[in-house]
């Protein structure tokens, strides 16, 4: 792997800390994407199927 992606991935994770709680930014992003997918699945209308 070369380029910006390799340099982006090739270092220890950055962590956010609030007291006893800590989470890596990458894990936080994945969880936020999952929550967004969950909200989108409820809010976005499903295309009409065959009647």
């Amino acid at each position: 792997m070369t380029g910006w992606l390799a340099s982006f991935l090739d270092h220890p994770a950055t962590y956010l800390k609030w007291g006893w709680f800590q989470i890596s930014i990458s894990n936080l992003i994945v969880i936020l994407i999952m929550l967004a997918l969950f909200a989108a699945a409820i809010l976005i209308k499903f295309p009409k199927g065959r009647e």
């Binding site: 969950f38 699945a41 409820i42 499903f46 009409k48």
Partner: peptide
């Protein structure tokens, strides 16, 4: 069932 939540 016509909802995206049932797709997962």
């Amino acid at each position: 069932v016509v909802s995206w939540i049932y797709v997962f």
